[in-house]
Amino acid sequence: MIHFFQVYKTYPGTIKALANISFKIEKGEFVFVTGPSGAGKTTLLKLIIRAERPDRGEILVNKRNVSRLKNSQIPMLRRTIGFVFQDFKLLNNKTVYDNVALVLRAVGHNKREIPKRVRQVLRVVGLEDWVLRQFPLKLSGGEQQRVAIARALINTPSLILADEPTGNLDPELTVEIMNLLQKVNTLGTTVVVATHNTNLVSQYQKRTIPLYRGKMAA
């Protein structure tokens, strides 16, 4: 599914974000990328979706070499990946329905099927129809993150990347969201969660890719 082979990434100003990173994630796995702030977790996720390009090394995602992907091919790669952010990144001036439907509109999905598909995916993440016409700021943090996960899932991606998805949530909501991600994983989607929360990692007993100052920790 994902294969990093001796990947290096340095940002301008010679800040080494990642150095000599190699790992493999199989299809259907649930993996934590762990490490403190500045360890390179977000950079790693950005490399997977080709928001960044590695300086050296190869990255394979769904058998595509993303480090050599042409710019015009990037949208096709991203349509197979769902992304969840710590700060949800919902559009506060749009309703929940529009936030989720935006993805299908962007990829040119059949217009007539969009409402049905949005309702389905909101049910999967445990939200009822009443939230459809609500604006994100009217919802709780946990509900907002559920909407964000619904947005990531709506295009039936084979991979979900979550960057500190519980970073803004209290412990109770954290469990809810993690359970939801697990549920998504059991439905066959590969899930990669980047987190600095060691309690969370120990609680869920999943494979981890530990990073420290841009390197794979022992």
Partner: peptide, 16 residues
């Protein structure tokens, strides 16, 4: 800015 960022992330083409 956020909308554009999300659109790009979910695989919207440059033209879209």
């Amino acid at each position: 800015k956020t909308e554009i960022e999300i659109l790009k992330l979910v695989g919207a083409t440059d033209a879209f």
